[in-house]
Amino acid sequence: MLQQLANGLFAGSIYALFAIGFTLVFGILRHLNLAHAAIFTTGGFLSVDLISRQGLPIWLAFPLVMLAGGLIGLLLERIAFRPLAGRPDEHFAGLISSVAFGGMLIALVQARYGTEQQSISSEAFPNEVYTVAGVSISLAQLTTLGLALVLMLGLAWVVAATPLGRAMRAVAENARAARVLGINVERVTASTYALSSALGAMAGMLMVLNVGQGDLGMGLAIELTGFAVIILGGMGSLWGAMAAGLILGLAEALTIHHIGSSWKDVVAFGLLFAILLVRPQGLFGTIKAREV
């Protein structure tokens, strides 16, 4: 039982890290970025490239993957979202443009890396397993949880305590007013995407580390769970995404244990539904679900 809880917790930390990038863009900019999953996948493949092919040590690969993710995020914002700003169909068109961008990104990843599954060799990252109180925990899991927490707390600090973070919160409240006050809204938007994508790419790397391999479809699977996490936690709430990721991971583990694996998604979406009907702003969110 304890093992199941541990399983769920670690799985949840990746959900949380993925979701947090998602919810950041939505919370600040009201965009649903459907390219996030592709950036996640790219991060995973890049990490394999850096570690297994270029032979870089893993501690160096972490920041490089995040940097790459950030750059892709800047590109994404510039190409797929900025040209749409102010247009009446901004939100619908943004969905399509982010889908298109994501598709192009995955095609490029396939062009570079082929179609096989990729994995990080154990020389680069040891396959250690520890046993605590009868529960088996791998080094990869610990690293994931640790890094995810550090990154999430880091992001929360940025948003709460730095000038950039204050500017982001201002833009989230009222972009027009923020602009009038002298905040460079374009730069804030670009930074938001860069941060979000850096985290997404990192989540991809941690996923590959944890799972043992990455494949081109890894983004799709986590995307849907990501939706459930951000709704559960509250759109735009960072703490919510963190908490909801962990909660969902636990819930899934318990469902698999007691009911069966097929139903874990039903549980996730059932929770999503219930929250949307009962408390649409999510467990911790403050954004109103009805934009009247």
């Binding site: 093992q3 199941q4 399983n7 799985a11 944890n210 479809g217 890894m218 583990a253 244990h257 694996s261």
Partner: peptide
């Protein structure tokens, strides 16, 4: 007798059972 979904990457729950 356990099942999982195609895109799953977490199997520890089933494996624990």
């Amino acid at each position: 007798d356990e099942t999982f979904q195609t895109a799953d990457t977490e199997f520890r729950s089933q494996l624990t059972k």
